[in-house]
Design a protein around this nucleic acid. Sequence first.
DNA 1: AACGTCACG
DNA 2: ACGTACGTGACGTTG
Length: 880
Amino acid sequence: MNKKLVIIDGNSLMNRAFYALPDLMNKEGLHTNAIYGFTTMLFKIIDEYNPTHMSVAFDLKAPTFRHKQYENYKAGRKKMPDELRVQVEPLKELLDAFKINRLEMEGFEADDIIGTVSKIAEEDNFEVIIVTGDKDAIQLASNKTKILITKKGITELEIYDYDEVLKRYELTPDQFIDLKGLMGDKSDNIPGVPGIGEKTGIKLLKEFETIENLVQNTDKLKGSVKKKIEENIDTALMSKRLATIVRDMPVDIDIDELKLENYDEQKIIKLFNTFGFNSLIKRISMNKEVVEEKDIKSVLINNDNIDFVIDEIKKKKYMYLKTVTKKGNILDKNIIYMFIGLEQDKVYYINEEICILKLKDVLESEEIEKYGYKLKEEYIALRSYDIDIKNMKFDIVIGEYLIDATSSNYLHDNLAAKYMGKNINSEEELLGKGKKAKKFEELEEDVLVKYFNNLIEVVIGIKNEMEKTIDEYEMQELFYDIEMPLIEVLGYMEYEGFKVDIEKLEQLKEEYSTIIKNLEDNIYEMAGEEFNINSPKQLGVILFEKLELPIIKKTKTGYSTNAEVLEKLRPEHEIIDKISEYRQIVKLQSTYVDGLLNIINNKSKRIHSSFNQTITTTGRISSTEPNLQNIPVRLEMGRNLRKVFIPSEGYSLVDADYSQIELRVLAHISDDENLIKAFESGEDIHTSTASKVFDVDIKDVDSEMRSAAKAVNFGIVYGISDFGLSKNLNIPAKKAKEYIDNYFDKYPNIKKYMDDIVEKAKSDGYVSTVLNRRRYIPEINSKNFIVKNLGKRLAMNTPIQGSAADVIKIAMVNVYKKLKEENLKSKLILQVHDELIIEALEDEIDEVEKILKNEMENAVNMKVRLSIDLNTGKSWYETK
DNA sequence: AACGTCACG
DNA sequence: ACGTACGTGACGTTG
């Protein structure tokens, strides 16, 4: 095999990566962009060139022989920024894990090491590849040595071999040194001959070949060039010496030591993990010669032999579980396979309904713990078989969400890479993506079996370590008592759905269509032409070019036409009102009326939203397809839509919402005496805040003061800034700052909370809720002012929003449990952050209200009491 | 796929 | 001086 050496200029490449990539950080706030860029480059080079030998050369801090020759060498160079400096040692550690040789030598620069090693390698008949961001290395090009230089960014490389240098510079690589001697080098502070640049330099060297020859023959020059050279002979010679890369350093280098060995995979994965390089973890396992590919034997179980599996489950008292379903109605039987794992290498699967039904007992047994991946899917899939799965005890997706709520990827292949260092076939690799994506039911059985066997084994492989982390983070209560039981509650709400009045919805559709049509006509007439009102771009042209209205604000793509801008333009032209109205109704029509009509379940005639438990960074749940957490309420026109959300025959809706839960949570966390007192007094909280901030008697607070105070309270919850408040209240920032200062004066412990939590985020890297839910805030250590300030607001807001989320989740679990215990027919069907909705049987309304009040107000014990408002009605609209 | 806009807590 | 309120999801347009 050909011997091939890749030698990299470590400092140079790190530098390039550092400046080319945005400021990446891991969750503890370690900057990682240079490491990341370097590593991707490393992968690329290994992939493309497949070297047998490799080394990375680094500069050391100590002065080199060049400094001794010329005291100004590299003078004036900026020192390495701290954000880059902190990445050097971790990168070296990573290289060690890769078993890639590192070279550094006191008194010499990386370039000299590279020059010396490449020479030794050339003599030993190696093919040599030098990777650097610095053009100086071009002098080393030869017919055996290629120089790769990073182009813009770091992913693109320019290749210089001997011929390429000749072509580009009309000089040999050796002459490149002379050229630099003449031109000098700003970044190294090599003087060169003043007034001689690249053009003249090349011309001279083409004629005289070297500087030495040139200075001997200055008589052949004329004019200003002659003068410049003659006056700078010594400088030119010295500059050439400085620019010459040493190729014979007095060292013994055994090139065999640069040989690539098998890298330490576990260590690399561990390091990638701390850096947060999840995508690279996948790549590292892919790069392995042999991907672990043992024959997977999940055992197919049928009706004749399933009893022995059931016995085994009962003995173990747990089961790992995954159902595979075909696409279809949530209410139908859709399971095509069910996988059951008991331990590593012991996975069974079934594909007959009769077998599923035989498992009903163990699935519904409180004694048998269920472990899995996205267990809500199992709950829902089994409901149509009349199986009510119990004791879902461990879900690795929920676990990972608690460990890192800012992660955007909880897919099993990613978790396998992180926890097990394994490269697993992902769902996207199995099914494809986008429009061409296949469905599970379209795949061959053996392919599916292999995939789901892997998935089960991932859950088995991860559970133990994840348990330890949950213990370490003291999240046992949050995980086992709240988030895990919540899975069933959310699954239940999805399966039950929310009834809608379809006729009413269709009637609204007609009404809105007529209004929209009229508005369109009006707007076209006022504009003098037809255009797409829904296009901000076209609308912008009409408003700001044709009608020449004043430009209030710009977006990065053009004119802003949002509601705030339109409000300011209102007095300018009568078209504005029509556009605002049009926007409002089109929104209602497209998102809500059409959106809802599209998604009504044809069997239940109800809406089955999906509730996601692992999306938000603060701990809230989110709702999709449709989003039932943003149904209009603020404006009457939109609020009417709530009339279509109705209970079943014989039922009513009972709606319970927490009063000021976030401010109450804040009072508790901050232990602020005044805010606690304000809640105890029973006084309206915004009025009470107004009386403090504006220093007037409660009875003298007018509505303007109250609404200003309300904005201040919102600001406090969001992580206050004078700018934000001033914008919201439309007052000068100075005035806003006065309000804030006043507020903190009157509520000193809140001020203390804000200061302390920001400090905590800085020192620990994360903040926590009352139940130890955690969010990492790397933003807070950013050098970027904007990002850092965002970090501060996140630190202030997350414990408040997150603790409120904790509280309502506890209430949900307890309300759900209570309804079940008491065998009530009433159903919990929706949560909207601080609000629960129960579809209550008429006869049970009193009991349901009692349960809601009791469980919600006593969900946690805080320094201020929690309070809810209760409303009952025949539509969501009526429960106000 | 990104952007602007707008609905909610 | 730097430019922002916190957390979401859906729609239509545009590139």
